[in-house]
Amino acid sequence: MTRGLCAQRIAQAVILHACRGLPDDIRDERFREWAAELPAIMCDSDIRFAILRSARALSYAAGTYRSVRYLRRAAGKPRTDGRQSGVTGDAAVGWASRSRRHPLAPPRYPDGVLPAIAAVVIWLILIVLVRAYQPQGPVIFLYISAGILVDILAVVAIVRFIRWIRRQSKHPPRS
């Protein structure tokens, strides 16, 4: 399996997971619609590098979580616990979707944990990659971009954690 095909499969899995949050009557149609765009992204000649096309496909797939939130609200099915069902979706989009928890939702873990984990994982992968392959040519920009992404994730994690602490101090959870 090529890397492009692998990325397409992952993106498809992310879309499938996002669509689980939709009502039954529109789930299948939305999944077919969104998954059908992936070949167009993977064959987009305007994006020069295959890795950037893969990243675009994954970002497209992550964006569908936001669409699902809107479609759920439009269909009159509000979230009950302030989050999408499942865990992998949060891991995939977490900070990117800028999801806000419902104020009455029971706290499961502090805000900012997911971006922090993502930052550490990307950072570790970066270290391994830099040691294994000396960056040359345009690949350097990818490393730099990944480094910037780690920084952003770290900042988001800290900000969200501070906000969470403030919220907890104002409204401590009932034991």
Partner: peptide, 22 residues
């Protein structure tokens, strides 16, 4: 189609599809 619109309008999927639905 969706990706065509995304590219032309320079919008992410999470913004475009809710807008199209509306």
């Amino acid at each position: 189609y969706g990706y065509d619109l995304m590219k032309a309008a320079r919008l992410p999927s999470g913004t475009l599809y809710p807008m199209l639905a509306r």
